[in-house]
């Protein structure tokens, strides 16, 4: 049972002529809390999408639970960027969470009672039970983020993949999110894309730095220099961007 949950072997990925990832070798072990950092356009989200089989590598292989991501991804919970939604879409919190119970093998489905129970559990765990009948669009950024996590949890995942969970969320909600993720990490592997290096330093066991190439560091070893080296391109453009160094406040 010691196989890695996620494994990249010599992975290259490009969008047409634009190379996004080059020769990536990464593995993530069960129970890890890993965070993916790097400049915009550096390939962080691409990395997540490769894990979920939403994209296929140009070269090399990506394995999820030792198998093809497309066949294994139902065991993963995906939490996409929460501000990319149509705010006019008529849907309630509970309806969104129930989507986590969708299953490609079931055709005609009203949701069953087991689905509803799982959705209610997930809502409760994310402290959202009171909001279940609310319109998704009426929520704050932090609440919306928790709804999307609840949706992923409703599918009973073994690994949770989050894309920028703390972006566009206020400080209180951010703190709360960190707590919740920490609790969840006790029973599942967590991988998240983030800009939030304070959080990385506090809670995360490993950092994957992506800027076309990938470097892996145990958190303790993330120094000003490692950050500077991956952000190099951007820092030349925006000189005061070195707030990313650990210990410093945003």
């Amino acid at each position: 049972m010691n196989e890695p949950v996620v494994e990249f072997r010599n992975v290259f990925f490009s969008y047409g002529p634009w190379s996004v990832l080059e020769d990536v070798n990464v593995s993530i072990e069960r129970g890890d809390m890993t965070s993916i950092v790097g400049p915009n356009g550096g390939g962080k989200t691409t990395l997540l999408k490769l894990v979920l089989g939403l994209l296929t590598p140009t070269q090399g292989s990506v394995k999820l639970f030792g198998g093809d991501p497309v066949l294994q991804r139902a065991r993963a919970g995906y939490v996409p960027q929460h501000w990319n939604f149509d705010m006019q879409f008529p849907v309630r919190v509970i309806d969104v969470v129930l989507m986590g119970r969708l299953n490609g093998n079931r055709w005609l489905l009203p949701y069953r009672s087991a689905d509803k129970a799982a959705a209610e559990n997930a809502l409760e765990e994310m402290r959202l039970s009171d909001l279940r009948k609310r319109s998704f669009s009426a929520l704050s950024g932090g609440q919306r983020q928790r709804v999307l996590i609840a949706r992923a949890l409703a599918g009973d995942p073994e690994i949770l993949l989050l894309d920028e969970p703390t972006a566009n969320v206020d400080a209180v909600a951010e703190e709360e999110l960190h707590e919740l993720l920490h609790e969840l990490n006790e029973r599942m592997t967590i991988v998240m894309v983030t800009h939030d290096l304070r959080f990385v330093h506090k809670c995360v066991s490993r950092v994957i730095c992506v800027n076309r190439h990938v470097a892996i560091h145990p958190t303790g070893e993330v120094t000003h220099e490692t950050i500077a080296s991956i952000y190099a391109g951007e820092m030349r453009l925006i000189r005061h961007d070195h707030v990313c160094a650990p210990g410093e406040q945003h």
């Binding site: 979920l52 939403l54 497309v70 991804r73 139902a74 993963a76 995906y78 996409p80 939604f85 149509d86 879409f89 849907v91 309806d95 969104v96 129930l98 989507m99 986590g100 969708l102 299953n103 490609g104 093998n105 005609l108 489905l109 009203p110 949701y111 949706r151 599918g155």
Partner: peptide
């Protein structure tokens, strides 16, 4: 008949794919 799938696909196509909805 396909109400749930249509809603999910219209609301969040990518997530639906992760749930293996066609």
């Amino acid at each position: 008949a396909f109400y749930q799938q249509f809603v999910a696909v219209c609301f969040d196509e990518e997530f639906s794919r992760v749930r293996n909805v066609r």
